[in-house]
Amino acid sequence: QRITLKDYAMRFGQTKTAKDLGVYQSAINKAIHAGRKIFLTINADGSVYAEEVKDGEVKPFPS
Rank of each mutant, 00 (worst) to 15 (best):
Y49E: 09
T15L: 14
T15W: 14
H33Q: 14
Y49V: 11
A31Y: 09
K6M: 10
D55Y: 08
K54R: 13
D20H: 06
G22Y: 04
S63T: 12
F39A: 02
A50G: 12
F61E: 02
L21F: 02
G13R: 01
G22T: 04
F12K: 03
P60W: 05
E51H: 09
I3P: 03
N29V: 14
T4I: 04
D45S: 06
T15C: 14
R36I: 05
A18Y: 02
R11M: 15
D20A: 10
Y49T: 13
D55G: 11
N43A: 11
Y24N: 15
G46H: 06
A31L: 14
R2V: 11
H33A: 14
L40V: 15
T17V: 07
A18K: 02
A44V: 12
M10P: 00
P62I: 05
G56V: 04
F12G: 00
F61S: 02
V53D: 11
M10R: 12
L5E: 00
K30F: 09
Y8H: 03
V53S: 08
K30A: 15
K6Q: 13
Q14I: 15
I42Y: 07
D45V: 04
E51S: 07
A27C: 15
K54M: 14
E51M: 08
K37N: 12
P62R: 04
D20F: 04
K6C: 08
T41I: 15
G35N: 13
D20R: 06
G46A: 05
D20Q: 10
R2A: 08
S26Q: 10
L5W: 01
H33C: 12
A34Y: 09
S47N: 07
R2Q: 10
Y49D: 07
Y49Q: 09
S26C: 15
G13T: 03
Y8E: 00
G22N: 09
K54V: 15
Y24R: 15
A31S: 05
I28E: 00
A18S: 07
L40R: 00
Q14S: 13
K6D: 07
V58G: 05
I42T: 06
I3F: 14
P60Q: 08
A44L: 11
S47D: 07
T15F: 14
P60V: 07
G46D: 05
K19E: 11
K59M: 14
T41K: 06
T41F: 13
R11Y: 09
I32H: 01
R11P: 00
F61T: 02
R36M: 08
A50C: 04
A9E: 05
N43F: 11
G46T: 04
K16L: 03
N43Y: 10
N29D: 13
H33S: 13
G22A: 05
N43R: 13
F12V: 06
T41C: 09
K37L: 14
A31I: 07
V23P: 02
V23E: 03
K30W: 09
K16S: 04
K30T: 13
E51P: 01
V53F: 13
A31F: 09
S47Q: 08
L5K: 00
Y8R: 00
Y49A: 08
K59Y: 15
G22W: 04
R36A: 07
K16W: 02
R11H: 08
K16P: 02
K16F: 02
I32T: 03
A27L: 15
I38D: 00
A44Y: 10
V48Q: 02
G46R: 05
Q1W: 07
F61Y: 12
A18W: 03
T4K: 08
Y24A: 15
K30D: 15
G46K: 06
V23R: 02
V48P: 02
V58Y: 11
L5A: 01
A18C: 04
I42G: 02
G46F: 06
K30C: 14
S26D: 10
K54T: 14
E52N: 01
K37I: 12
N29K: 13
I42F: 08
Q1F: 11
V48K: 03
D45P: 03
A34N: 10
I38Y: 01
A27T: 15
T15R: 13
Y24H: 15
P60T: 07
I38G: 00
T41V: 14
G35Y: 05
S26N: 09
P60F: 06
E51I: 11
E52R: 02
Q1P: 10
F39N: 03
R2T: 10
K37V: 12
Q1N: 14
V48A: 05
D20L: 11
D45W: 05
L5H: 00
P60R: 11
M10L: 13
A44G: 11
D45E: 05
A50E: 00
M10E: 13
S47V: 07
K54F: 14
M10G: 10
N29P: 07
R36N: 05
P62S: 04
I3G: 02
A9T: 11
R36C: 06
Q1C: 14
I32F: 03
V23I: 11
S47M: 07
G46L: 07
Q25Y: 10
T17P: 02
P62Q: 05
I3D: 03
G13L: 03
K59I: 15
L21A: 02
A44P: 14
A50W: 03
S63Q: 12
F12Y: 13
D45T: 05
I28L: 08
I42R: 06
F12R: 03
E52F: 03
S63D: 14
D45K: 04
A18E: 03
V58A: 10
G22V: 03
N29C: 13
I28T: 01
I3H: 07
D45G: 05
I3S: 05
T15V: 14
N43T: 12
S26Y: 11
A27H: 11
I28S: 00
I32R: 01
T17S: 04
G35E: 10
G13F: 01
A50K: 01
G56C: 07
T41R: 07
I28K: 00
V23S: 05
I28W: 01
Q14Y: 15
T4G: 09
K30V: 10
D55N: 13
D7C: 11
V58P: 06
P62M: 04
D7M: 08
Q1E: 15
K59P: 03
E57N: 11
N43P: 04
A9G: 03
N43E: 10
P62L: 05
N29Y: 15
Y8G: 01
A18F: 02
S47I: 08
N29E: 15
A27G: 05
K6H: 11
D7G: 05
D7T: 06
S63N: 14
A34D: 15
A34G: 09
M10K: 13
F39M: 07
Q14C: 14
N29M: 13
I38H: 00
K59H: 14
E52Q: 04
Q25N: 08
G56R: 06
Y49K: 10
G35Q: 11
V23C: 09
T15Q: 15
I32G: 01
K37Q: 14
A31C: 05
